[in-house]
Design a protein around this nucleic acid. Structure first.
Length: 410
RNA sequence: GUGGGAUUAGCUCAGUUGGUUAGAGCACUGGUUUGUGGUGCCGGGGGUCGCGAGUUCGAAUCUCGUAUCCUACCCCA
């Protein structure tokens, strides 16, 4: 038997599909209300795009991208995230030169060549938004509001963690200070941290080793080293969130692995889905457009992992819907099929092709969760009527067939 | 990439030192004497026990390999 590849799932379960579309309906509706419009970019891009945006520093490029050489000998890569493609499209269309504000949302599959675990697949889905051309910190707050709106509508509880990563003025200096701090405790920290010192020093801050964490209590905090501009923006952001009653917690260990991020970084986490607890994350990336050959353009965005969210969604209760039609006499089957066909113009309607007794029809109607069970037996056949039972309130009536389509409205 | 656990019917799982035709519940399906469901009763179909080797007279059961799933780590865009 041929099976799907590791970490790649089908969506064929009806409930799963319903959850998926329920999420998308809500998320896209919110994004549109915020004035964002849909963008779709290719699943496959030049590997160089992701190498440039991600940098060569971590495991990402070598180990965790779905990269291969195609038949034309092009080095290509299935997109591991959405931002790089959107920025590429933005620059390619020369919107950076056109100026103005451009706001997009997207959703679709992403691919990462990783070992699967809870909340982590090789093919997974993200919903995200990107905003270009707005440097104001109000936009940062609006991003967070958008995520809050989506999660609220989905009935998902969360904790919001917030940090500022500084910018070119303050980040490099902080990085130097942090490295010299690490060197002062280097012989006591774990192997991973010793490696991180060289590859990505800021990552030591969220090391899971308790011993390391206690050593890092005295580590310099970026939040105390922000330059005036970053500090003002961060204060303003906190005030906007306070004014709008959005709870957050400053997490000075919240970092991003990549160089292009600056200033605002935020993450929404859930305590109910295992160690991969981030359900949405975002931040400002004022440098990325320039990294990808565009004119420097302020930008900010977020992305949410759809599979992780689906686990947490509280679905509205399902009520009975539509019609079930059945015949109790072979000779009525044709009539049933025709009536169903007409009924489907306006309502969901299903019918059985076999004559059965009433009890079995009721069972079948119940099984597909129909609201009405409609049956034609010998009596109804002779009288040109159809018997209809509302399965919710259990009321019954026999009506003329020609009235069947008008008189009953769900 | 590293570590731990798992893999038996569509689903959730039993299967007691290796021993005849591998079981249950749910689901599906048929009937229930000729018109009332979701909640009665009786029956039926469905499994080369993940895959491949090995040990053995004999393997779902033991050994090795391999794949996949779950889970944590690394990493996290």
């Amino acid at each position: 038997m041929i099976k799907s590849l590791r970490g790649m799932n089908d969506i064929l379960d009806e409930n799963e599909y319903k959850r998926f579309t329920y999420f998308l309906d809500i998320a896209t509706d919110v994004a549109k209300k915020y004035g964002f419009h849909y963008i779709e970019t290719p699943l496959l891009e030049e590997t160089a795009l992701f190498k440039r945006s991600v940098g060569e520093s971590s495991d990402i490029v070598g180990k965790e991208m779905y990269q291969f050489i195609d038949k034309g000998k092009n080095d290509v890569c299935l997109r591991p995230e959405g931002t790089a493609g959107v920025v590429r499209a933005f620059v390619q269309k020369k919107l950076d030169k056109a100026g103005g504000i451009h706001r997009f949302f997207y959703y679709g599959p992403m691919f990462r060549y990783e070992r699967p675990q809870k909340g982590r697949l090789r093919e997974f889905h993200q919903f995200g938004v990107e905003s270009f051309g707005v440097a104001s910190v109000y936009e940062d707050a609006v991003m967070i509001m958008m995520v809050v709106d989506i999660l609220k509508k989905l009935g998902i509880g969360y904790r919001l963690q917030l940090n500022s990563l500084g910018d070119n003025n303050c980040m490099p200096q902080y990085r130097e200070n942090l490295i010299s701090f690490i060197e002062s405790v280097e012989d006591k920290i774990c192997e991973d941290c010793q490696r991180r010192k060289n590859t990505n020093p800021i990552r030591i801050l969220d090391c899971k080793n308790e011993k390391c964490q206690s050593l890092y209590k005295n580590a310099p905090k970026l939040i105390n080293a922000l330059c005036k501009g970053c500090e003002n923006d961060f204060d303003k952001l906190k005030k906007i969130l306070d004014d709008n009653e959005i709870n957050y917690k400053i997490d000075t260990n919240l970092v991003r692995g990549l160089d292009y991020y600056s200033k605002t970084a935020f993450e929404f986490v859930s305590d109910n889905i295992g160690s991969q607890s981030a359900i949405a994350g975002g931040g400002r990336y004022d440098r990325l457009v320039e990294f990808l050959d565009g004119r420097p353009t302020p930008a900010i965005g977020f992305a949410m992992g759809i599979e992780r969210l689906l686990e947490l969604i509280k679905m509205p209760e399902e009520s009975r819907e539509g019609y079930y039609l059945g015949a109790m006499d072979e000779n009525a089957v044709d009539t049933i099929v025709s009536l169903t066909h007409i009924k489907r113009m306006t309502e969901k309607a299903m019918c059985d092709y076999k004559a059965k007794n009433l009890k079995n029809h009721l069972k079948s109607a119940d099984k597909i969760n129909a609201k009405y069970c409609c049956v034609i037996g010998t009596n109804e056949m002779n009288e040109g009527t159809i018997w209809v039972k509302n399965l919710e309130d259990k009321t019954e009536s026999t009506i003329k067939r020609e009235d069947f389509h008008q008189k009953l409205k769900i």
